[in-house]
């Protein structure tokens, strides 16, 4: 139980995927313009991260390791993630159209999100058990969502500000992200 709590705190706050590991920066910058879309993206990431780990972990432990093919893991993991995302998109479209219209649009964005591939590989590198891996993936997703939603709030506030011309757009967004990373550093002391 102790280790689960440690995983939760570190995945959400101290070792936040976006602000201290620098994974998933593209959606962090891209989808944080509006609060509503940031929540949708966050939910989709939590879902895909958790399910991808549920597939990649057994595939690694019971297929690649016994066969001594661990060096193939990048290829296998990225294929599993790509196939899984495609599958979920198709099933969701057919079975749950309302959910698809709110979440589905974010799914294709996730295949090439480095946070998803990153979390599946970090679980292996850290030597987590199956349930620890699942917990780490889910909480990493929660951490991602937290930062995305907080940052969307910051950016909505910034809309009306008078910003120097050269800093408009991306530069000021990065500077704001820097200040946010600074505040998250407070958790690790």
């Amino acid at each position: 139980m102790n280790s689960f709590f440690a995983i939760m705190i570190s995945a959400i706050l101290t070792d936040n995927f976006v602000l201290s590991k620098f994974m998933g920066i593209c959606p962090f910058i891209g989808v944080s313009k509006k609060l509503s879309s940031s929540i949708g993206m966050g939910a989709a990431v939590i879902f895909v991260m958790t399910c991808a780990t549920a597939f990649t972990y057994p595939a690694y432990k019971y297929m690649l390791e016994p066969l001594g093919l661990t060096y193939l893991r990048i290829i296998l993991f990225i294929l599993i993630i790509a196939l899984f995302v495609q599958l979920v998109e198709i099933v969701m479209k057919k079975v749950m159209p309302p959910l698809y219209s709110s979440l589905g649009v974010y799914l294709p964005l996730i295949t090439t999100n480095c946070a998803v591939l990153g979390v599946t590989m970090l679980n292996i590198d850290n030597g987590y058990t199956f349930w620890e891996s699942i917990a780490n993936a889910a909480f990493a997703g929660v951490g991602f969502t937290l930062v995305l939603v907080l940052f969307a709030g910051v950016r909505e506030k910034m809309e009306g500000c008078d910003i120097p011309a050269a800093l408009k757009g991306l530069p000021i967004t990065l500077v704001a992200a820097s200040i946010m990373a600074l505040s998250f550093m407070g958790f690790s002391f």
Binding site: A166, L167, S178, L182, M185
Partner: peptide, 21 residues
């Protein structure tokens, strides 16, 4: 702080701003 995550965002933001200028 420049080799910490916060510094990374900051430096990249400023480089792009200088380039814009």
């Amino acid at each position: 702080v420049f080799i910490m995550p916060a510094g990374g965002f900051f430096v990249l933001g400023l480089i792009i701003a200088v380039l814009n200028l």
